[in-house]
Write a protein that binds this DNA or RNA. Structure first.
Lengths: 252, 252
DNA sequence: TCGAATTTGTGCGTATGTATG
DNA sequence: GCATACATACGCACAAATTCG
């Protein structure tokens, strides 16, 4: 049964990368022992039905990613890594939800500009086609590792200074408060998953073939009027989305 | 500017697969014209900074997936394809939410067995460690294409005949009704995204490197007692998750 | 019906990346 | 590290199908 283990040749993804993906998954589960030590390369090679060289290439890639650390003579060890949990609910806040999960959480404004609303944005925000919007590009990091990349749109006439407010406060919620929005809530959220595109691999420091969780969200004011539309790309291997039910204590 | 377009060589993912992933994304956006026709291969090759053969390999893979269709002399066209929308809310039901989106929706029981609860399952269902559970493997299909693969656990003592009921009714909700559960609700849901593993590539007919949305869910009865824990893998390119807010009319 | 332009389909030789032992 | 086999990517050339004047 030490056969191909489901790996495919000639499918455009090298065996060592397929194995790296499997090991990355297995790391959370049963692959490592209590001390976080991986089985020896020869055993992994046999289990995956490949040559030891191929397993070494996979481990090398994961070591470069920071997932594993190989030590000559001692074995290969899993480096501590926690997924961040991003709560989604009626009262979802961009950074508040992640608080306490990391020492150093940052939201950095990469760029901002005014632009005419695309059909998608216009419909979401309830604007006339081509009405002007303010668009922000925000990079979220935890302990120096980028975890999310968000594009946010606001009505330019209602929130002319949103970019300034965000730069000064480092928080969308605060920036909205200074724009006169005392409270807001999440009206709709959709989630998809895609392969990282060029911008993702650059900003989130991902390798080709890596996965991003793709979240579309619309926030509304207490009257139900749309105030903010956003597309957020999360580095999928660093994040879990937690969907909060209204009553139940979203336990886990 | 017709440079590398962000493609990476020697990263374990072939150029043609990276390009196929980009084209698959671009299909929804601006890549095709109004008639669903893609730019000619020579233009795509220049845009991606690769040889035409490489673009052809990408197109060939997407044609095999059913995303594109090439016609000699006429061009390459996008085949109509809709994403299914899976609503997640307090009253999420396995198949009811997808109703009306496809002519032919099916839930097929692949296998079932009794097994001792793993620590994860025991904690979720509130069982003693190693208490017996019933485990179902269910494959969901739309119009003959598999879209989801779910593993469900129930308390064996409370739901001894759940597998029989499911086989006869083809519905989890119905099977629970016959087990005396008139109503239930979603207590917690988490979402991650991963690369397809061996079972995913087989059952969901995915290629290596493909993405699955990974959903953990716990359903409880009206008293708040856990009745069902499940892990669902969705083929990510066939599905959008819609997170329903309690009050707001989860609009699009 | 005839060409000419456009676009996909095919073959071959060669260099590099991947996988084995 | 080395030798071998296969997959990937390139460049060039040409064939086959469609469209249009």
């Amino acid at each position: 049964m030490a056969g191909s283990a489901g790996l495919q040749r000639g499918a455009g993804v090298s065996l060592w990368r397929q194995i790296a993906d499997r090991i990355r998954l297995g790391v959370a589960a049963d692959l490592a022992d209590q001390n976080g030590r991986l089985p020896p390369e020869t055993e992994l090679a046999e289990r995956f039905g490949v040559n030891r060289h191929t397993v070494r290439a996979a481990i090398s890639a994961l070591a470069h990613e920071g997932v594993l650390q190989a030590a000559q003579g001692r074995g290969t060890y899993v480096r501590r890594q926690r997924r961040l949990v991003y709560p989604i609910g009626e009262k979802t806040r961009f950074s508040a939800g992640l608080e306490g999960q990391s020492h150093d959480l940052r939201s950095e404004l990469l760029s901002h500009r005014r632009e005419a609303a695309s059909p998608e944005v216009a419909e979401a925000l309830g604007l006339r086609p081509d009405e002007e919007t303010v668009r922000l590009e925000v990079l979220g990091s935890a302990d120096g590792t980028p975890v999310s990349r968000a594009t946010l749109w606001f009505s330019s006439s209602r929130f002319p200074d949103i970019a300034d407010h965000f730069v000064r406060t480092g928080s969308i919620t605060e920036a909205l408060t200074r724009s006169g929005i005392a409270d807001y809530s999440r009206a709709s959220t959709t989630v998809e998953a895609r392969h990282a595109d060029e911008a993702d691999t650059g900003e989130l420091r991902l390798s080709p073939g890596a996965i991003v969780l793709f979240m579309r969200a619309l926030n509304v004011d207490p009257d139900g009027a749309p105030i903010q539309y956003s597309l957020t790309r999360f580095a999928a291997d660093r994040m879990t989305l937690l969907i909060q039910s209204p009553r139940q204590p979203g336990g886990g």
